[in-house]
Structures are given as C-alpha cells and as structure tokens.
C-alpha cells in the first residue's frame, strides 16, 4: 500500500515539477506557479509517508499559504503580455538540458553505487514532540532559531525598502 502511494505521489511531484519549468502548452507564469503548488502538495504527501507530520503541515502552511500567494500577487502586478510570447532560445535550451541531465546523472549514479544506509535498524518515528525537544531543549539549535527570527526581521525591512516607491522613482545618477 505504501509503495503504491509512494509511486503515485512521486510521479505527481516529478510531472508537476517538470511542467513548472517547461510547459509545452502555456508560457504563462501563473500556470507554472499553480503547478508548483501541485509539486508542493505531493511533496507534503511524501513527507507524511516519511512520518514527518510537522514538516508536512509547515510545508503546506508556508508554501501554499504564503509563498505561492505572494507569487500570485506579484504576477497580478506585473504586465506579462509580451514576456509570454518570447520563446526559449535554442542555445539556452541545449545548455539547460545538458547541465540538468548531467547533474541528475551524477546524483543518480552516486545514489545507485553507494546504496546509502543499507542496514537501517531503527527508523525515526516522526513524533513532533521529538522534533520540539531537539529544537529547544537540547540547546544545539537554540541560537540558530533566534538568528532565524532576526533574519526574518531583516527580510521584512529589506523587502519594504527595496520595493518602496521613493527608492525607484528617482534617476540612477541623482
């Protein structure tokens, strides 16, 4: 049963992921964003299959709830009429295919030859309280956690400053 669910979910993730970057039917970024949503939901299903319940919930909340919505808002703001008509250049296509196929080949050959963790004994049962203990009580990740909150604050201020109107309306050389 697990095997069938794994194959369905991973097929959905891979197909949606490829349609995000190279969709033969539509060149609209809106369609790509919605296919990324499909990938995110199938990956959340795979996380549940891996007993990572908290990460699956966070994935759906943050990606589907925040990231994709932000993307869709910016897509509405930007006028894409002439961008959509542009074709992929042949040179870029060849470079992309060679680069990505070689990267995938190196990864897959490494995975197949090393066969990682053949002798696993005890798998992580994915209790969210275990995750919380690692994050907060053991103390190893306490400082990174606080630094992340600082980073989020910096990102808020930076995003507002970069996209503000006074910053962009003036001449470059003034």
């Amino acid at each position: 049963m697990d095997t069938i669910i794994f194959y369905i979910l991973s097929l959905m993730a891979v197909v949606c992921g490829i349609l995000v970057v190279a969709n033969p039917f539509s060149r609209n970024p809106l369609v790509s964003a919605l296919f990324l949503l499909g990938t995110i939901f199938s990956l959340a299903g795979l996380f549940i299959l891996l007993n990572a319940f908290f990460i699956a919930a966070a994935q759906i909340l943050i990606y589907a709830g925040a990231v994709i919505v932000l993307f869709l808002f910016v897509l509405m703001l930007v006028d894409l009429k002439e961008e959509v008509k542009k074709k992929i250049k042949l040179f870029a296509l060849i470079t992309g295919i060679i680069g990505s196929l070689m990267t995938a080949g190196v990864f897959i050959l490494t995975i197949l030859y090393s066969m990682p963790l053949k002798t696993q004994k005890d798998m992580f049962q994915g209790d969210p309280s275990e995750l919380g203990k690692t994050l907060f009580i053991k103390g190893e990740f306490l400082l990174p956690f606080e630094v992340i909150s600082l980073l989020l604050l910096i990102a808020i201020v930076g995003a507002i400053y970069i996209s503000s109107k006074e910053n962009n309306s003036g001449d470059l050389h003034k």
Binding site: V20, V21, G96, T103
Partner: peptide, 13 residues
C-alpha cells in the same frame, strides 16, 4: 535528484 534537475533546467534555460 529528478526534481532538483528540473529546477536547475528552469534556472538555466
């Protein structure tokens, strides 16, 4: 790995 390669293709092409 396949998903990563798809993303890499998009970022390049």
């Amino acid at each position: 790995a396949i998903l990563f390669a798809a993303g890499l293709f998009g970022a390049i092409a």
